[in-house]
Amino acid sequence: MSEGEPLIEARRLVKRFGDFVAVDGIDVAVRAGEVFGFLGPNGAGKSSAMRMIGCISPPSGGSLRILGLDPVADGPAIRARLGVCPQRDSLDDDLTVIENLTVYARYFGLPRKIVRQRAAELLEFVRLSERALDRVEPLSGGMKRRLTIARALVNEPDIVLLDEPTTGLDPQARHLVWERLFRLKQRGVTQVITTHYMDEAEQLCDRLVVMDHGRIVAEGAPRDLIERFSTREVVELRFGDSPLESVIAKLDGVGQRLERLPDRILVYAEDGDTAAAEVQRRRLVPTSVLVRRSSLEDVFLHLTGRTLVD
């Protein structure tokens, strides 16, 4: 593998389960040191893509190279250099916290002495040193996720795959996980993340692809995507119970673009305050007006006509 060649390179990658096409010909290239994201709603094909990259699910079509190797022929060799944090915590309830790391490390054939030392360091890193000898079951959701992340790092992987790393966690636990993943990025560890949270994608990813129905609908850095597919600001208008059809006709020409959602109208504009003033001027009386910066949610809405989390 030469310098600068992508660590992960997929061309027209396909995954089929019977008649169902989970991943429908995607092209992806992940470079060393970057944090790469798959953003999309549930069922978009992110996890299937992730399982193919993790070499536990053979591709049905297209080509895939990971670390310059072929996932079907060299599965064990590639997996030896990957760290995987699955969507569902799959920790071993029969073992203690530290045993979850030491037992797992043996699957990579690491010598016992190194295993012990590294397990202690990793528990320190995910702030679980005090719980080292406890059982896993009583740990909180956030602690379990951090332990799973530590487990994914036990072989000092070249690439870490994180499938929905903060789904199901409370806000405080999420921030702690994000902060640890940021530290990891600072150490230069390449990360691939799937998420259906736009804030998570914006926080963590250098570059991402937006997926929908197994296809990639957009690709770029979070800020670039927002600039390309959305305006700088958005005004969210709510009108209580009054039907939005009648309102939206009167908003024609306000901002650059309008989106109607079941409960509100979004006005896309470079300057949100100006657009909000224009709404007032047209004698419309919304029950609430919110001016905010555009997010990836708006990009997704624009590209697919749907929201990420329904």
Partner: peptide
């Protein structure tokens, strides 16, 4: 039920 092997197949163990 314990889903123990889900995490093992992600390692070099076949």
């Amino acid at each position: 039920y314990m889903r123990l092997y889900d995490s093992v197949i992600a390692t070099p163990v076949a």
